[in-house]
Amino acid sequence: MKRPDVTTTSTRAGSVASTISFSNVDGPGNRFVVFLQGCNFDCVACHNPQTIPVFQQVVHGDGHERARYQRSVDEVLAEIRRAAPFISGITVSGGEAMLQPEFVRDLFTAVKADPTLQRLTCYVDSNGSCDDATWDVVTAVTDGTMIDLKCFDDTIHREMTGQSNGPVLRSIERLQSMGLLHEVRLLVLAGVNDDNALLHRTGEWLAAIDPHMRLKVIGFRAHGARPHDPPLVEPTAERRQAIADLLHTIAPFDICVV
């Protein structure tokens, strides 16, 4: 087997679901991605529902076992060093990255302190639900954030995620004002959050913050998501493009449709 080159001095540990060496869908360029375990949202459309519980259910021998996936900053750094020549940066995702702000801070700090890694940018991919004080733990060492806006309507947001969107909207505004907002992701769930009038209000709110904002319109994909009654519906490619076109009538957003 392949042996990672670990020279651990073991600092802070995080609950890490998994890592991937190369990703081209988690921020600018090629990125090493750390998926942290545990999320405070319980989204009906989540395509990685196994990362929601703080404890991960693992099959061990003949029975099930609850286990935390602990990895130290140094262990993750050793993996990043292998990928470093090939990437633009690292992204911490989840689960919800900002449930472990100290781990994120220490990981980013370590990257920026290492002469061989300091050119890498450090991004957070978050549901945007944490408060200012929590963001303030990481912002000094963070180069950019990507925030999901599940729905601009709070009632629908609560139905989709189990939580209010108030903190999410606050995060988007504040991160933008700090120059740390790379992208806002708009998840589209056909028949749930894709009403044209609602999308129009969403676009106007975003345009007031930054008319050139980078938006990613992401169609819900059933693959990986938990079964739901009634079944959740994937928007068609035409519908996703129509949503992008609608948003473009509001402001010159930089829109990517996936």
Partner: peptide
């Protein structure tokens, strides 16, 4: 296919490949 929307990711890999 996802690389089509992020060609810089492939540029990163090419540069990395040559530097290693």
């Amino acid at each position: 296919e996802t690389a089509v929307r992020n060609p810089q990711a492939v540029v990163d890999i090419i540069r990395g490949a040559f530097s290693t």
